[in-house]
């Protein structure tokens, strides 16, 4: 592998990692604060794609469609929280798993009922078309670079939100100090609603970013959800920093695994192991640290 190809693959890995981070951070926040596992996060990724495509088509502008799509995502996330999840916080995990699994089925098929079975179109906005030269000989698509930068910026904003604001303090207090938060006079129900919306919207935004490079179809969020759950497990449940490190690790391992392993081990075995590399890394980390990277 030449140096310029190596650089290009590093950027590819970064971009995949960033998208995974956006999905994973939603799962890990909801876990950390509400102690709830949310399998419907993949459905929100898919809804992000469909909503942005629809809003863009309706307004004939990506940049108008984006805020509209996000607004619609917020409404959907609120409805999920108010109608279903709110009733599950005090319930056993199996109820949470099944209700959010049921939601996932409903959204996946609901999208078919609303948008039909033919996929929906979504293009790269005109301003972000084309490619830039990163290094001599390395032309990289602007859109992919923009996705990486935008997702990274969201990550930084999230870091400040969590470390510097009152909402962040409450999130950090998390599940461990629930009683204390209530004593401080904070409306727990409202806090939970906010956190779920934040997590859901981040997942939906990942779907929006993915839309132009992938297919906006039913079930598009499911494979991402699984990879995001792996990131959450590797990073340590509830840890935003852990999820970030894990997402980068998964993005890089997946990208370089797919490129290098078939070359090193031959097509058949190499590809088989490349498919599993993410899970092998996870197993290795769990043997070393059973509660993930961020565990104390």
């Amino acid at each position: 592998m030449t140096f310029s190809l190596f650089v290009e693959q590093v950027f590819n890995g970064l971009q995949l990692g960033m998208l995974l981070f956006l999905v994973a951070v939603g799962v890990t926040l909801v876990f950390g604060v509400m102690n709830l596992v949310n399998l419907s996060q993949g459905a929100l990724v898919m809804m992000g794609g469909f909503l942005l495509a629809t809003a863009t088509k309706a307004t004939s502008s990506y940049w108008l469609g984006l805020p509209l799509g996000i607004a619609a995502l917020i409404v959907i996330a609120m409805l999920i929280e108010l109608l279903v999840l709110r009733r599950l916080y005090a319930r056993p995990h199996i109820d949470q798993v099944l209700a959010t699994f049921g939601l996932m089925l409903m959204f996946n098929e609901g999208a078919v009922m609303i948008w039909g079975r033919d996929p929906v179109f979504m293009a790269i906005p005109a301003a972000l078309e084309g490619s830039v030269t990163l290094l001599p000989g390395v032309a990289y698509p602007i859109y992919r670079l923009a996705v990486t930068i935008f997702a990274g910026a969201l990550g930084v904003a999230l870091h400040f939100l969590i470390s510097r604001t009152r909402l962040g303090m409450l999130i950090r207090a998390g599940a461990d100090k629930r009683e204390m938060i209530q004593l401080l006079g904070v409306d727990i129900a409202f806090l939970y609603l906010m956190v779920f919306c934040l997590g859901g919207v981040l997942g939906g935004v990942a779907g929006m970013l993915l839309g132009p490079i992938s297919a906006v179809t039913t079930g598009m969020g499911d494979p991402i959800l699984i990879l995001a759950l792996v990131c959450v497990v590797i990073g340590g449940l509830g840890s935003v920093g852990g999820a970030f490190v894990a997402a980068m690790l998964v993005g890089m391992c997946d990208t370089f695994g797919r490129v290098l392993l078939p070359q090193a081990l031959g097509a058949g075995t190499g590809q088989a192991i490349a498919n599993m590399i993410v899970y092998l890394v996870m197993a290795a980390i769990l043997i070393w640290r059973p509660a993930g990277l961020a565990s104390r």
């Binding site: 190809l5 590819n12 995949l16 993915l210 992938s214 990208t255 490129v259």
Partner: peptide, 10 residues
């Protein structure tokens, strides 16, 4: 597979 960027670079 979600993303073909690695394969397309190759």
């Amino acid at each position: 597979q979600l993303d073909f960027s690695a394969e397309l670079s190759q």
